[in-house]
Write a protein that binds this DNA or RNA. Sequence first.
RNA 1: GGGCUUGUAGAUCAGUUGGAAGAUCGUCGCCUUUGCAAGGCGAAGGCCCUGGGUUCGAAUCCCAGCAAGUCCA
Length: 925
Amino acid sequence: MLEDEYQLDFFYENGFIRKQCSKCGKFFWTRDVDRSTCGDAPCDPYSFIGDPVFKKNYDLSEMREYYLKFFEDRGHTRLERYPVVARWRDDIYLTIASIADFQPFVTSGQVRPPANPLTISQPCIRLSDLDAVGRSGRHLTTFEMMAHHAFNKENEEVYWKDHTMELCDELFNSLGADPLAVTYKEEPWAGGGNAGPCVEALIGGLEVATLVFMDLEQSGQGNILIKGDQYRKMDNYIVDTGYGLERFVWASKGSPTIYDAVFPNIVNELMGLAGIEHELDNSEYANILAQNARFAGLMDVSEKANLFQLRKQVASSIGTTVDKLSTIMEPVENVYAITDHTRCLTFMLADGIIPSNVKEGYLARLVLRRTLRKMNEMDIRIPLSEIVEMHIDNLPEYPEFGEKLDVIRDILEHEEKKFADTLERGRRMIRKSAKHYKSAGEKIPLSTVIEMYDSHGIPPEVSKEAAAEMGVETELPDNFYSLVAEGHSRAEAKVEKVFPYADKVDKLPKTKRLFYDEPARMEFEAVVLDVFDNHLVLESTLFYPEGGGQPADHGTITVYDDVLNVVDVQIVNGVVVHTINGTEDEFHLRKGDLVIAKVDEERRMAHACHHTATHIVNDAARKVLGDHVWQTGAQKTVERARLDISHYKRITQDELNQIELIANRTVMENQRVTAEWMDRVDAEKKYGFKLYQGGVPPGNRIRVLKVADDVEACGGTHCTSTGIVGPIKMLKTERIQDGVERIEYAAGLAAVRATQKLQSYLDQSAEALRVLPEHLPSTIERFFGEWKDFKKENEKLKDELAHVRVAGMINDAIDIGGIRVIASLVPNADAEELVKIAGELTREKDVVSILVSDAEGVKIVAAAGNDALIAGANAGSIVREMSKVVGGGGGGRPNMARGGGVDPLKVNDSLECGVALLKEQLKVA
RNA sequence: GGGCUUGUAGAUCAGUUGGAAGAUCGUCGCCUUUGCAAGGCGAAGGCCCUGGGUUCGAAUCCCAGCAAGUCCA
């Protein structure tokens, strides 16, 4: 079936023939009648190294510009790149392909494309082959996907396969590629719920472009089977191409590795710092790298076993040993990886990712720490920010990077310190553990190494190294990381809550939402469209459904004489569903009834104040903390609101005060709050992706809300001007994740109430201490100091008291088998005092003391001096038995034990019991 | 979003089965020394993160919170 897809006029008219690869069996198109292989790895090895495929060599910006200009000249609109962090999507963190820019709404046909056809060079980040980066000679974490896209609809076709192939082929020809060297391999493509035929463009053994003709979508009813899944034709069909900028540059230069082609000056600089002579003019050295890249091109080197295979092949091809080769290659590979990783970090941080322990922030930290480890290994002792600065200088076509330099430097310094601390902490833990296993004469077990990594972030090599310094071996198998993964329990798939009547609701027309046009109106009449149990759908409503962190409106709906309470309002696919407190039996509503409804105005106003305040605070936070601040969540209630923002440090009280001041200033300026329905594409162009801080709404048109300098796509109900918000009172900050700060505040009347509450805390505290509130800090400090002094003095007095008492008590000792025994009641003494007395008494070696007190129930302490112990006395068992008598328990060591009970009347019985037991122990009849 | 680890003296950390809060470094005082480095003797310094619970008794066990670290999606 799919075969027909590739029978293009373009091929036939341009002298191509379809062949089947003699090695992999796949079909491909070529102009070369003698060719028998498809041109892709592993069927064809790299031939471009040392033998560039284009007539001229290009650096990144030249190549990018050439490409974009080429497509611009051929009717495409050039688009600015999108950020590497996919702010407009909630299903992926990073931009992994140019088409990701247009998913999901443009590709689904819901939103018109920003231009059609268009061309773009989109920086992408893929961390899936992290281990291969540096080793394979071709893998990068960050690359630019140059692309031209055409979005076709039935009866509105821009262009499809033939023209796409034509453009691609023309591009190669214009760059001076040998037409006979270019092959186009057929390779059906599927991913992310879509699929379609695809052609890979290959030259010199290198895949440089992928041309996807996306025209299928996954569907249970589909009749096209690809890789076991069913697909069906889509109404719209999309030309999704991807040309690897870095690969084009590499192919144009023919350097041994892609790294030497893409950022040669930084590679050289770092090689120098690492003390490696990276002389590509040296043909022997260049040959090693080239051979490595050629062989690596044929395999996946992210696995250790494969890496060894690679080494073996390269070693034998140049006539050396694996060991010798490894000592040459490993440092070079590390430097390549460092160069690549730092470029990745440059894009990540400049586009606003804050390193964190969750989400995309974790990915940034992962790359960052990996880089630091490699730098450490290579003994490159410069701040990370210096390398990042080199990249920024190297990428003048991204002027926005330079503007972020100060924040980036700050973040990097902070992260470097953090990692150094973590490692130092880890080394200490390992040393401790090593000491333990050394004395036992054992290796450090795997479980410890896993825990060090999993719970404390200490890479296994670091553990091993630290242990080795102590002369202890470490158990560290090759499949360490998979063992770590095994230890993790599988996350349970969460069951998403589905509205039970979703099917029926889907058939109803979308509810007219009146609250946008008439934000001040609270009463309305409407016709009932349908009723499901206690859920009610009206044809129009003033009730705001929960959304955007704003809770649902409450209120009443009156029908005939029944007043029904609305306790929840949700929106299901554009249909607003009101939930009534009660069951259907209790009220009598039918389709077509006319109801009078009233929204709880106070609740709505409180929400509106907090919602508008949230935008104001967000704006103020960005002004105080910096432009990297990004809203990651928000929630409003009647009493308070909270805003989560990305920030790499804790917010200080001083900063919070500033935010509060700026926010209240915005309020006092009484600026108009405006909401405007805009075309999505226009809005994005005008305001950027900051629009989507509160979430990404669906649809072609979005509601753009402007509050002060904050512009966001927001569907909430708001105050009409900032003055109406009233005072904004900061309540607290909280660190909900590393890199995410939560600010809590109250606005309007809630702010006044919050302030009053704080005031009452102060007043109550001041009153309790009988001072004025302004004297609280000094008074409390004094009190706390005095309390500590009293505590110490109390301790001292008890010591002295014990000392004094002891003198009297020792005289009352009775002799039991040569041991002096003091068994007595010490009235009102607490356990602490008894211990002191007993301790004091038993400094005499031949003494056993059994003390009982009637404070707070019964306290019992027994102690035995050294001679008494030898004679058989055991305070522990004495106390245990005595405690039973008074209805409690106790125990301790033979020389000192404590216990107690609840029955003070049995104090004497208990003492007698203790003495009797002691006699037994001392074997005195 | 899920998992794991940790909060004890100024710092780094011990603290057994629940039963007398410790070590090392640092600080202070005295001694030794021509001086420095160091050594000797001694001292100060603890809401054992917070709040509940279990218990005669909690740094220790349980629950909740706060703070910190870390792995993964």
